[in-house]
Each structure stands twice: as structure tokens, then as C-alpha cells.
């Protein structure tokens, strides 16, 4: 039930964003997202609301650590 999926913002009007992923289109509300999202951002969508912007830099960073075989360094 807590299923939340990443979708890409295609346009924004007031507090509503048109989002899309793999051809599936939807509309989500931006009332509870914590930082302003922009067109082109991927957001985590749940029950008709965007919860958060996905941080590409963090994502790439995590992968880089993996690829360098430094998984352990993620423990802080």
C-alpha cells in the first residue's frame, strides 16, 4: 500500500504536476513536497501526491561507491 513510484515531471501548473513514466501519465499534487520541483525532475509519487524529488547526485554517488567495491564506506 505504501507503494510509491518515481515519475518524471512534464509540466507544472499551480500545485499540480503532470507526470509520466514509461508512457503512463498522471497528475500529482505538490502540496507536501519539501523542496520545489521542476520540469524534468523525477519525483516519488504516492496516492496522488509527490513526496520527494529523487536526488540524482546521491544516486550516482551510491552507485559509484558500489562500482569501486567500497560498499562498506556507506556505513557512517
Amino acid at each position: 500500500m505504501c507503494l510509491a513510484i518515481p515519475m518524471e515531471i512534464k509540466s507544472i501548473e499551480d500545485n499540480v504536476a503532470r507526470v509520466e513514466v514509461g508512457g503512463v501519465k498522471s497528475q500529482v499534487r505538490l502540496d507536501i513536497i519539501d523542496e520545489p520541483a521542476e520540469v524534468g525532475d523525477f519525483v516519488i509519487v504516492h496516492a496522488g501526491f509527490a513526496l520527494r524529488r529523487i536526488d540524482r547526485v546521491e544516486g550516482l554517488e551510491t552507485l559509484k561507491l558500489f562500482q569501486e567495491g567500497l560498499g562498506l564506506e556507506l556505513i557512517k
Binding site: I32, I33, R52, E58, E61, K76
Partner: peptide, 18 residues
Amino acid sequence: VVVNNYKRVVSDQGNTRA
């Protein structure tokens, strides 16, 4: 320790607005 291993989606302080 509690580790945040999902940083691309979870910030340590969470979504304060929500």
C-alpha cells in the same frame, strides 16, 4: 547504528513539510 542507505530518496531529516 541506524544507516540511511536510500539517500537518493530519503534525507536524514525527512520531509519536514509533510
